[in-house]
Amino acid sequence: MAELTIYRKLLNIQRDLKAPKGQYNNFGKYSYRNAEDIMEALKPLLVENNAITYIEDDSIEYVGQRYYLVATISFVDVETGEKITVKARAREEEIKKGMDGSQITGAASSYARKYALNGLFLIDDTKDADSNEYHQQNNQKQGQKQQAQQSKPNQQPQNNQQPNNQQGQFIDNIQYQTIFRTVESIAKAKGIPVDQIANFVLSKYKITDFHQVTAAGYEVVLGYLKTQLKIAQAK
């Protein structure tokens, strides 16, 4: 039987790898995976295919007056020494509440390494909580849920449920989308996950979902976001 090539070994691992979401975000109420979860799931498959994966030293790139941490993941065929590498980048924030400089760098490194691993091993397309696709899916579901509630005017809210929006107490779906698109723009300008910006703003206004922004507070929240966007774009 012919020996497996490095590409066949990589294909085998891409086919068989199941990386669990071993972490949980208590604030956002979602499970997610980190680089360590992926590496742990890889170990038996690497042994089976006589290959190794390792993380090379991170490097720093300076682009457009911003620093980006570059993570490089290498996949090596032990039998031949052939190597395949994949890189991913994450921007370091200048300031992040509750973190010192080393923690900010560490967070960017973890993020970059995770997405380099995702790219190399084709982690399945289940949407992670820090991806734009995940938030877009949630936005669509929330909008559909809100429309369904509004289409039942005679239905009384049950105990412990949020009241419906018949009296215009909360923002409508168009306003919600405006807020979230602004959050996405801030994240893009900063080069960080949307999840980080969204969670910070939700925490600031002591809510768990942007649908809970009141109609009266809409301009306040949107004004704050627009200011933050200008600041991010100016850097």
Rank of each mutant, 00 (worst) to 15 (best):
T126H: 06
E133Y: 09
S131F: 10
K114M: 07
L122F: 15
Y134P: 09
T126C: 02
A116P: 08
N139E: 02
H135Y: 05
H135W: 07
F121L: 04
L120E: 00
N118D: 15
L122S: 13
S131C: 09
I123N: 00
A129P: 04
N139D: 03
D130E: 13
D128V: 13
N132G: 02
Y134F: 15
H135G: 00
G143T: 06
L122T: 10
Y115D: 02
N132S: 10
F121K: 01
L117G: 13
D128H: 14
Q137M: 07
D124R: 12
G143Q: 04
N139Y: 00
N132H: 13
Q136D: 14
K114Q: 03
G119I: 09
D130S: 13
K145Q: 06
N132D: 07
N139S: 02
L122Y: 14
G119P: 03
F121H: 03
D128Y: 12
N118V: 15
G143S: 07
D130F: 11
L117D: 10
A116M: 11
D128G: 15
Q142S: 08
Q140M: 04
G119K: 09
K127E: 11
Q142W: 03
G143D: 04
D125T: 09
D124Q: 12
K145A: 08
Y134E: 07
K127A: 14
A116D: 06
L122C: 13
S131H: 11
Y134W: 15
K145L: 05
D130C: 08
K127F: 10
F121A: 03
K127P: 05
T126L: 09
D128P: 12
T126P: 00
L120H: 06
N132T: 08
Q142C: 02
